[in-house]
Design a protein around this nucleic acid. Structure first.
Lengths: 372, 372
DNA sequence: CTGAAAGCGCTTACAG
DNA sequence: CTGAAAGCGCTTACAG
C-alpha cells in the first residue's frame, strides 16, 4: 500500500498510523516536502525543477540534489491541473498493424520521451468517425500536442481541432502550399491564416516516379492495384495517372481498386484478377508492399515469371520485400525520419519557438530490385 | 483559444474580456457550472455522473441531461488528482512491430475504452532496463491498472511493482501455480501471498505439440530454430526438448539459437545454416512464423521441396503464413482473446470485484497446412 | 531572484 | 439520499 518502499521494520499498527497522518495523506513525497527540506518555498522548488531561468544557479543545484535524494517525482495530474496542460502528446494513426506507422511511432516516441513527453496512441482504423470519437475522448486530457496522419478529417473532428488551439503537426502528407486563404469580406485585414504544419513527402510524386520506372523498364500496359483507398493511396493513383498520361499509355481499365484492407491474401487475389482479366498487362504498380508481396507469391504459385512475363512494383519498402522471390522493387518511404522530424517540430510548437520549415518535405527513394 | 467554439460575433476586446472573467478562468464548463444549472451541489453532480448508487434516480437523470446539454466533460487531471487514480491503463509490450502484440493491444483497447479507460502503451524492446525506465516514468501517473507481458522483470522493476499496489495482469504466459510462498521466518502467520493474475497459455505445451506433430508426420531429425530468445521462446524450446526426449530423438546439435531480432531475413539465414551444417535434418520448428516464412522463401530460392525434403513449422500464425508457398503449418495463439480477457480481468481488479480465474488458460491450436 | 496567496476542477471523508 | 468543508499537489499571476 505505501508508495514508499516499506521500511525494514514491520509497518505500524493502523491506529497509530491514523494518529500520525492526515486522513488523505498519500504518503507521497511532495513539492512541499522538498521545499521544507531544502529550506526554500515550494514555488522555488517548482521553478528550479522545471528549469525556469530566474532562479539562482546555486539554489537550483541544491534543490535538485535534495529532490533527487528524497526520490521526489512530480505528480503529473497536479501539474496538468495547475498548468492546464499535460505532458501527453496525442498521436492518431490509422492502423497499428502497418509497419509504416509503427516505425513512425517509434521514432516520434524517442524524441518526445527524451523531452519528457508521453505518447497517447489512438488508432482510427481509417474511420473518420472513430477518429472523431478518439479526439472527443482525448482532447479533454489537454494534450500538449497532436500528431495526426494526413489531412482527411470529419467536419466534427475539424471543428474540435479548430476550437482546441493545441499544437499539431500532420504527417505522411504535405500540406498544400497554396491552400486558399479564407476571405472574410470585411474591410478589416483578414487575420493571417493559422499556418499548417506538416512533415512527409509527395505521395503523388512518388506514385509517378515508380510508374515511370516501370515505363523505363519497358512496360507498356501498366496496371494499378489499390487497396484500402485512403487519401494517400489515391494520391499515389493520381501520380500513376499523371505518368501514364504523359506517356500516352493511360487506360482506365487498368485501375483495379478495392476498398478492403491491404493484405498478402488480397494481393494474391488482385494479381490473379489482373492476370485473368487483362492478360496483356506487363507491369503492375501495387499501392503497398504487402499486396505486392502477395502478388509475388501468387506468381510463384501460378508459375509466372517476374519480371519476365510481368513486372511488379510495390510501395513503402516494408519488411520482407527484400526477401521475396524475386526481391521486390518499391518506393522506400522515410517514415522514421517523418516521425522524428514531426516530433521535433511539435516540440518547437509546444515551446513557442519558431518552426523553420512548416512544410517539411523528406522525399522518397526508388529501390530497384529484381521484380522489375 | 477559447475551449468553447467561438460565438458567431467577433470576440470581445481583451480589456472587456478581462473585466468579465477571472484571471485564470479556462472558459471550460465545470462541475460547478452544471451544479448551478441543475440546482444541486457539485458533489451530487459528481456522484450522479459517476453512477454512484446513493443518489436519487430522478436527480441522476436530471443532472445527466443538464450535463449533456451543456456539453460538460470531466477534467481527467482534476479527477486523477482528487481521487489519486487516473483512468489510464499502462500496457507494456516488448515490440510494436510484432502483429502478435498489436492484436493483443487492439482487443484490450476495445474493452478498456468501452469502460472509460485509456491505454498508455510502453514498448520495452525486450530490454528489462527499458522496461524499468518506462515504469519509473509512468507509475507516477497513477495508472488505474497495468498489463504486463510475461513475468521476466529486472529487480528494480519488480520492486517498483511491489511497492505500487496497482492492479495488474500478466499476459501471454501463465503464472506458475506452485510458486513457492515467501517464508518470513517469524512466528506470526505469513501473510497470504498476493495472488498473481495471468491470462495466456502454456508456451511449453504448445512447443511440445508442434514438435510432436512433426514427429507424427514422419520427421526423425527435427531442428529447432530460435531467434530473440526471450522467455517465451525458451519455453517453446523446452517443449521441443520434452517432445523429442520422450521420443528418444533429442539431439542438442539441432538447436540453432540466435539472439537477434526475429525477421524474414534471419529466417532465410537460419534455414540455410541448418541445410548446410545438418543435411540430415528432415523437419524444422521455427520459434516464430516470420523466421519460418523466411525459411520457406529460402527453400524456394534453393529449389528445396517443402515438405518433401524438409518439413517446416512455425509459431503464432501470423499474417501471410497462409499465403506462403507452401502454406505454413503453425500454432495459432489466441492473442486477441488474451488481450480481451486480460482487460476484463483487469477491470474486475480495478473495481475490487473477485476474479473467478486468476490464472486463465486460453489454449492454442495446431494449424496444419502444406509445409509439413 | 524569491515568495504568499489563490486557484486549477474535481473527490474524499465526515455530517446530517 | 444530499451537502459544506477540506484537500489532492502543483503552477499562475501578482508583489516585492
Amino acid at each position: 500500500m505505501p508508495a514508499k518502499p516499506a521500511p525494514a521494520a514491520l509497518p505500524p499498527i493502523s491506529a497509530t498510523d491514523k494518529d500520525t497522518r492526515r486522513s488523505r495523506a498519500s504518503g507521497r513525497i511532495t513539492l512541499s516536502d522538498v521545499a521544507a527540506e531544502a529550506g526554500v518555498s515550494p514555488i522555488t522548488v517548482s521553478r528550479a525543477l522545471r528549469g525556469e531561468r530566474r532562479v539562482d544557479a546555486a539554489l537550483v543545484d541544491k534543490v535538485r540534489a535534495v529532490a533527487e535524494r528524497m526520490g521526489y517525482v512530480p505528480d503529473p495530474a497536479a501539474r496538468a491541473l495547475a498548468s492546464q496542460k499535460s505532458t501527453q502528446v496525442l498521436v492518431l494513426i490509422p492502423l497499428l498493424s502497418n509497419t509504416l506507422f509503427v516505425d513512425l511511432l517509434e521514432a516520434a516516441h524517442k524524441v518526445l520521451f527524451a523531452a519528457g513527453h508521453h505518447m497517447l496512441i489512438g488508432v482510427t482504423h481509417y474511420d473518420s468517425a472513430e477518429e472523431e470519437q478518439l479526439l472527443r475522448a482525448y482532447l479533454p486530457m489537454r494534450p500538449a500536442g497532436l500528431l495526426l496522419t494526413g489531412f482527411d478529417r470529419s467536419p466534427g473532428a475539424a471543428q474540435l481541432l479548430a476550437a482546441s488551439a493545441i499544437a499539431r503537426v500532420h504527417v505522411m502528407e504535405l500540406h498544400d502550399a497554396f491552400a486558399p486563404a479564407t476571405v472574410t469580406g470585411t474591410t478589416m485585414a483578414a487575420p493571417a491564416p493559422a499556418p499548417v504544419y506538416s512533415v512527409g513527402f509527395s505521395q503523388t510524386d512518388a506514385g509517378a516516379a515508380i510508374t515511370r520506372h516501370l515505363l523505363d523498364r519497358g512496360c507498356r500496359r501498366i496496371a494499378f492495384c489499390g487497396a484500402q483507398l485512403d487519401a494517400r493511396v489515391l494520391q499515389r493513383l493520381a501520380g500513376y495517372r499523371q505518368a501514364l498520361q504523359a506517356a500516352g499509355l493511360y487506360d482506365p481499365e487498368l485501375e483495379i481498386l478495392n476498398p478492403e484492407r491491404s493484405s498478402l491474401a488480397l494481393g494474391s487475389l488482385l494479381f490473379e484478377q489482373v492476370v485473368r482479366t487483362q492478360p496483356a498487362v506487363d507491369g503492375i504498380f501495387f499501392c503497398n508492399d504487402d499486396i505486392a508481396q502477395g502478388a509475388l507469391l501468387a506468381a510463384t504459385r501460378l508459375g509466372l515469371q517476374v519480371p519476365g512475363q510481368i513486372a511488379i512494383a510495390g510501395f513503402n519498402d516494408l519488411p520482407g520485400s527484400d526477401q521475396m522471390v524475386p526481391p521486390l522493387t518499391t518506393i522506400r518511404t522515410p517514415r522514421s525520419a517523418v516521425g522524428e522530424q514531426a516530433a521535433i517540430m511539435l516540440l518547437q510548437l509546444i515551446r513557442g519557438q519558431t518552426v523553420p520549415q512548416p512544410r517539411l518535405d523528406l522525399g522518397y527513394t526508388l529501390v530497384q530490385r529484381q521484380s522489375s
